[in-house]
Design a protein around this nucleic acid. Sequence first.
DNA 1: GTCCTATATGATTGCGGTAACAGAAGTGAA
DNA 2: TTCACTTCTGTTACCGCAATCATATAGGAC
Lengths: 341, 341
Amino acid sequence: MNNQSNRTLTLRDVSEASGVSEMTVSRVLRNRGDVSDATRERVLAAAKALGYVPNKIAGALASQRVNLVAVVIPSMSNMVFPEVMSGISDSLEETGLQPVVGVTGYSRDKEEQVLYEMLSWRPSGVIIAGLEHSEASRAMLSASGIPVVEIMDTDGTPVDSVVGISHRRAGEKMAQAILKDGYEHIAFLGTKMSTDHRARKRFEGFTEALAKAGVEIEDREFYSGGSALVKGRDMTREVLERSPDLDFIYYSNDLIGAGGLLYMLEQGYDIPGQMGLAGFNGLNLLKGLPRELASMDACRYEIGKTAADIISRRVAEDGERQSERVVLEPTISHGDTLRRH
Amino acid sequence: MNNQSNRTLTLRDVSEASGVSEMTVSRVLRNRGDVSDATRERVLAAAKALGYVPNKIAGALASQRVNLVAVVIPSMSNMVFPEVMSGISDSLEETGLQPVVGVTGYSRDKEEQVLYEMLSWRPSGVIIAGLEHSEASRAMLSASGIPVVEIMDTDGTPVDSVVGISHRRAGEKMAQAILKDGYEHIAFLGTKMSTDHRARKRFEGFTEALAKAGVEIEDREFYSGGSALVKGRDMTREVLERSPDLDFIYYSNDLIGAGGLLYMLEQGYDIPGQMGLAGFNGLNLLKGLPRELASMDACRYEIGKTAADIISRRVAEDGERQSERVVLEPTISHGDTLRRH
DNA sequence: GTCCTATATGATTGCGGTAACAGAAGTGAA
DNA sequence: TTCACTTCTGTTACCGCAATCATATAGGAC
């Protein structure tokens, strides 16, 4: 509390204040090794009185242990990663490990930089979104010698472990559900997919499953940037003007789906009779719309939890590289915008 | 790239591979000091070939410099902090500083833990949400000797610098606008405010401004947890059943406001004639609703940007403690749910 | 009393870098 | 030629802590 000088405190200060060696102070503060109750209390009192905060930088260097887990994700603002983060935090809660987040903005170069930066802090593990990375990124990851879990997507070859869903399969599943419900004139609205590999895979799975049933997408539209709700509205209007015979629109995420839903309700469409809709992600946020949008749960929380579990297990074992592969199955929620055959 | 052993690389490895001293390698990799082009290239080639990633832990310990800025916020999933974060990231982009986020879940104890954890990494500065902290937290902050910026809220006494809006004033301003527009039978719906100090301050400012005009809140309701959109619907229904004479509802955030808006539109209310609504936060996300909800912009991006600017300036100056106080003025957006007198 | 063991504490060393200084080689002016 | 100065590279001494080993003290068995 009462440090007048601005030199920051070290173990030595606490040791002098409590009349024991630095080593004993260190032991007390880390709860490691045998220390008598009397000295323990004396040390803790001194540390508290001084307002001492240990220097983890020095500690990490000396012990060669860092309780950090690097989490590399494309964005924090789109609703899906916060939920992954809660899974990670909950899993790590009791392990002494701590997540540290880096954001890439869906750019491979940025990802490489962020990864380099994070690895230079020598974390105990890495959780990173997606399977598509630069060559250099993959090299860094495998050279790092620490457990790596790639998350969200399982369609590809991981560096080490992987936890996620198959987005191709998610697209297929949705296509099959739609067909089974009797929709035939189908459009797809989504993001520009040059960098969003998972959206692309869903799209591919979707179109291929339709193709197998002899159905072809009749219209499509891609957007980037802007408010998703507004985009959903606008794109839906345009597509419906262009292709009035549609009876189903598949949106690449729930937000633009919600925009489309609101627009169609205003226009007096009969949903889901005349027109069906579905999104992707199962956004809790959107519960409470006039109709509940059909969607597909991407198991975000569980992905985060499982990935972090793998990391902490590997850190505890401190053992051989033992890759795991966890493929979760996304489930459709029919909501109110998909007629049941 | 090709390291067969799993021992992690050090400067020494690069130095041996390139035939110069470790010091010269260090200089090359940090772009500091004079190095001839020939050796520079040799070193860079060796570092790249080995896949060397510098150890910032050692570097930070030796140089007593850490390029990290601790950012302590209550939550990442409520839409408001991601925007603050972009302001911070954008500001820090070119400074070499890097934000590291800690989340407190609106708990003082958790905040104290998170802060302790982050300070133990000896960051170059701290950006922390709110002015209400535990005694110990305040002590840690002021003892740390690094620049501290408390953000979001200016109603109180900061440890060091502060950037934000006055939430009391925001509440007052909204009350004045509502009164001016001729609404008189007013309810408030919001979060349980035991830990959300900013919501409480808005509420206080709001009620006091109404009181000054001789108007009293006729109903109120507080919630916690659950989907905000659904809560907004449910609470609005309940309040309207209980107090059918209301002509205005002030929501403590845009999401429950949107829920209420959707409900009232379904019920056929004339908005904003018969009934006005307003929220708080100016959530971009919600652009695209059938009506645009009146709201108040909390200057989130600008707060983040300004706070980070202060930190980086102070770090660069490396000078005396020079506290700043930046009070931004929130602006009402009338939207479509507030009648204009 | 002797020996052994468990408990409690201290001294030394090194983690992987960087600051600060020292030295070698080259360059131009007097 | 000599000196002063720049440019480049190396040497040494830490940074603040924890691993490791050494030491001191106390208690129990015999």
